[in-house]
Design a protein around this nucleic acid. Structure first.
Length: 360
DNA sequence: GACTCGTGGTG
DNA sequence: TCACCAAGAGT
């Protein structure tokens, strides 16, 4: 790693950040606690997710799983149900795995050293630094997108922040800046400035507490930073979604595999198809017979649902279908009454499907 | 190192 | 409408 060269009044910059934070910080639920378990939950939820989105989920989650042990001994499906709609569902499953590690290996106490906490499932460099600094007051960097945006502007750093190695550069800068007296206020202050002041599109440099230190502000080049490689648009995928209903007015739902997209969440049966493929009745009848041992008579397409993920765009053509017999449960699928659907964790894409089903 | 992994907000 | 963005981690 190269030695970092920059001219900067580091002492003054640090104290400006800390001072501003204590005068301007938002009153957020997780800031009412320094319980490392609570900090941990909030930091995982906040990964790639905006504060306003997280707040209600955090409150519900903490009230349902108040202690580390409550979460460790809960059913995964209950945890996923609480996480429903928040996205990146592996965060929830890894959080529970991590909590179980802490219960079993560390006597239910979240580790307060970097080596152990980094070994925990779902805790990476950012979350480790956040918990160590906020809950344990250790001078460890917590480099997220906010921090990289703010510091890239202050120091005119043009390394691609999409690259993993770039984070190390910022961590080394933080080690030179972070005060022993208040590492928590410093890390949170840097992020809070990023969230409230040093915004991506409309930086409010006129009220920024560190504008005097900022090279981008000096050059009027704020919007040139941070440098980030563009990502490719989501790849379109096409599916027939089939909603079979049996003689008892129950519908068929399927549990997704335990790895990959939307792992362990529930959905209505899906059949991968080509974009302009039609005359699907034969394919649907065949798949339903093979997978679920039912004879279905598909109706016409009832509705179309589209849903965009980070890297995929789903096009779902929804079919309803009646079966003239009584459905039987299998290893990964169940027949449930409409009212019982609410107890299963569904991704938003299939909540859209469900909304249509319930309305008809 | 490059992909994968959700969802909602924003201009 | 749509590209970009948001307190990243696992593989």
């Amino acid at each position: 790693m190269n030695k970092i060269e920059y001219s900067l009044d580091t002492r003054q910059l640090s104290s400006d950040i800390v001072q501003w934070f204590h005068d301007n910080k938002r009153d957020l639920p997780w800031r009412q606690s320094e319980d490392p378990y609570h900090i941990w939950i909030s930091e995982v939820m906040l990964q790639q997710t905006q504060v306003d989105t997280v707040i209600p989920y955090y409150n519900t989650f903490v009230s349902r799983f108040p202690t580390l042990n409550d979460l460790a001994y809960a059913d995964e499906e209950t945890v996923l149900k609480t996480w429903e709609g928040l996205g990146y569902y592996s965060r929830a499953r890894n959080l529970q795995k991590g909590v179980r590690e802490v219960v079993e290996t560390y006597g239910s106490k979240v580790p307060d050293n970097k080596k152990d906490i980094l070994s925990i499932k779902g805790i990476g460099p950012y979350t480790a630094g956040a918990v160590l600094s906020i809950a344990y007051h250790q001078p460890e960097p917590a480099v997220d997108g906010n921090v990289m945006r703010v510091l890239s502007r202050v120091l005119l750093i043009d390394d691609d922040i999409a690259k993993a190695r770039t984070r190390l550069l910022f961590e080394n800068i933080i080690y030179d800046l972070i005060p022993e007296t208040d590492p928590s206020g410093f890390n949170q202050g840097l992020m809070e400035i990023g969230a409230l002041v040093c915004k991506p599109k409309q930086p409010k440099c006129d009220v920024c507490p560190i504008a005097a230190h900022c090279l981008a502000n000096e050059e009027g080049a704020q919007l040139e930073y941070p440098v980030k490689k563009k990502k490719t648009p989501p790849k379109p995928l096409y599916f027939a979604v089939v909603v079979p209903q049996d003689q008892h007015q129950r519908v068929l739902i399927q549990k997704r595999p335990d790895k990959g997209l939307l792992a362990n969440l529930w959905e209505f049966p899906m059949i991968s198809v080509e974009p302009e493929q039609d005359n699907l009745d034969g394919i649907i009848e065949c798949e339903m017979k093979n997978r679920y041992n039912i004879i279905v008579k598909p109706k016409d397409i009832e509705t179309t649902v589209t849903h965009i993920f980070s890297h995929i765009k789903w096009h779902l053509n929804v079919y309803t279908a009646d079966i003239s017999t009584v459905g039987e449960d299998g290893e990964t699928y169940r027949w449930v009454k409409e009212a019982a659907l609410d107890s299963f964790p569904f991704p938003v894409s299939h909540q859209k499907v469900m909304k249509y089903i319930k309305a008809n």
